[in-house]
Amino acid sequence: MAKWGMVIDLEKCTGCQACTTACQMENNRLPGESWQDVLFYTEGKYPNAQMKWIPRPCMQCENPSCVTVCPTKATYKTEDGVVLVDWNKCIGCKYCMIACPYGVRFYTDEKPLIEPNVKDVFKGDGDLTWNPPYKGPQQDNTKGIGIQPSGVVSKCNFCYHKISKAPKGTVNLSNDDPALREFVPACVRTCAPTARYFGDLDNPNSEVNRIIAAKKGTRLLEHTGNKPQVYYVTGAGAAGGTVIPGGRSSKDKA
C-alpha cells in the first residue's frame, strides 16, 4: 500500500491559485472554502519589501492531531496515508478544526463569504448543502467526497476519488504517464509550472522522495510533531522560504 505524499516546489510556484480553483470545482467547494489555499505574506519596507506565497493543501499528517481529537472517529487515516472525514459520523463539534495546526478544515454552516449565498441560488437536495449546476458525478459521504451535508466538517482529501483508483503499485502519480492522468489530484494535475509532485513516500525510489532528498524538503511546523506528508522544497527564488511569518509580524503590520 502506497503512502501518498506531495512535494511542492516553491521555487516554481507562481501563486496563481489554479490549484485552488481546480480543487474547488473538482470537489464542489463553496466560494472561499479553499481546501487548497494559496497564502500570501508581505514583509519589509518599500522598496525592499518582499512578497511570498505558499500553497497549503491538507498536510495529510503522519500523526494527525485532527484524528486523535475526533470523538467519533469520523476523521480517520486511510491505509494509503490520507486523512479523510466520514460525513455520516461527523457530529460537527469542530474540535478537529481547533486541533489542526495548518487551518485546513472547514465547517459548512457559516455565513456565506460572498452574497448572494450560492446555497440559496443552487439549493441542495435533501441534506446536501447545495447543488452546483456543475456538480461532478462522485459522491461518497464516508470519505468526505462530493457535496457536503450540513453540520459536518470537510477537508482536502488528496482527490481521493481519483487517487484511490490509481493502479496498485503506482509510485509516481503524475501527468507524465498518459495512463495515469485521470488519477492525479486536481491541484497537481493543473499546476502550470509543475510545482507539485505526487507519489508514494514509502517507496524510496519515488520521484517525491528523490526531490525531497535533492532539494532538501522541509515540512511545516515540525515542532507540533504532526509530520506532514506534504513537503516543501525551495531554491533561491523569491517565492521560496518555507518560514511562514506568524501573527507577531502580521500584528505589527495592522
Binding site: T21, A22, Y134, P137, N175, T190
Partner: peptide, 27 residues
C-alpha cells in the same frame, strides 16, 4: 452535465495545465 474543465494534453499551449480562471469556466 459539464462538471470539470482541465487543460488538454498534447496541446501546444495548455499542455494539460490551466490557469486559475480556466477551471471556473463551467460557471
Amino acid at each position: 452535465k459539464v462538471h470539470a474543465i482541465y487543460g488538454s494534453y498534447d496541446h501546444p499551449i495548455s499542455n494539460g495545465k490551466l490557469c486559475p480562471k480556466g477551471h471556473l469556466g463551467t460557471y
